[in-house]
Measured scan of single mutants.
Amino acid sequence: LLPSFEIGAWTEDDVYCWVQQLVRKGDSSAEMSVYASLFKENNITGKRLLLLEEEDLKDMGIVSKGHIIHFKSAIEKLTHDYIN
């Protein structure tokens, strides 16, 4: 489970856990499981996660359009939940 809904306070480890949970919950393929490490390697914290754009995801090595859409949708939901 994630430490809190205060996404802005999430550490790199918290984001890593979130990506792992996202991959487990989704209908995503096994190749998506490597993405948790990509987020950690790129020092993505909660604040940075909320700022990620499609180009950032591509720069991190996420090239599948479907996977990018999956992440963007999940990040938008997080942003919405965080604001409300």
Rank of each mutant, 00 (worst) to 15 (best):
K40Y: 01
R24P: 12
F71H: 04
V63Y: 08
I68Q: 07
G66D: 15
I83T: 15
A9Y: 10
L49A: 01
D81Q: 11
L22Y: 05
D81G: 11
N43S: 09
S37K: 15
Y16M: 10
Y82R: 09
E55F: 02
T79R: 15
L49Y: 05
W18H: 04
D27Y: 10
S4N: 14
G66P: 13
E6T: 07
F39T: 01
A36F: 03
E53F: 11
L57P: 04
K25L: 07
S4F: 06
S64Y: 02
L51D: 11
I75Q: 05
I75W: 01
E6K: 05
S73A: 12
S33C: 07
W10Q: 09
T11M: 14
D27G: 12
I62E: 09
L52V: 05
I62V: 05
K77S: 09
K72F: 06
E31I: 06
V23A: 15
Y35S: 03
I75M: 03
G66Y: 08
V15M: 00
E54A: 07
G46M: 09
W18Q: 00
H67L: 07
R48T: 02
S73F: 06
G66N: 15
T11L: 00
V19W: 06
S28M: 14
L2E: 12
G66Q: 15
I7D: 04
R48N: 06
Q21N: 13
S28Y: 09
Y35W: 06
K40E: 06
T45W: 00
K40C: 00
D56I: 00
G61E: 00
E55Y: 02
I75P: 01
C17P: 01
F39D: 01
S37Q: 14
G61T: 02
N43Y: 07
A74F: 04
E6V: 04
S64W: 05
S4V: 07
H70W: 14
H80D: 11
S64I: 11
K65Q: 12
C17S: 13
L49G: 02
F39G: 01
I62N: 03
K58A: 10
K72P: 00
S37I: 04
E41H: 12
C17H: 13
I83K: 15
A9Q: 15
D59G: 08
L51S: 14
Q20D: 09
S28R: 11
S4H: 14
A74Y: 10
A36R: 00
I83C: 14
A9M: 12
L52S: 04
H80Q: 13
Y16T: 05
I69S: 13
F71L: 11
I69M: 12
M60G: 01
G61V: 03
N84H: 14
S28A: 12
H67M: 13
Y16Q: 10
A30I: 07
K77Y: 03
L49V: 04
I83G: 13
L78F: 02
G26S: 08
V15S: 03
D14Q: 06
I7Q: 05
A36N: 02
M32N: 05
S73C: 08
E55L: 02
T79I: 12
K25R: 10
D59I: 10
A36P: 15
A74L: 06
L22P: 03
W18M: 03
D81Y: 07
R48I: 06
K40I: 06
Y82H: 14
V19I: 07
G61A: 02
I62A: 02
Q20C: 08
D59V: 13
R48Q: 10
Q20M: 09
E6R: 03
L2N: 15
M32A: 12
L52N: 01
F39H: 01
M60H: 07
I68S: 01
P3Q: 12
G46F: 07
S29T: 11
E76P: 00
D81W: 06
V19F: 05
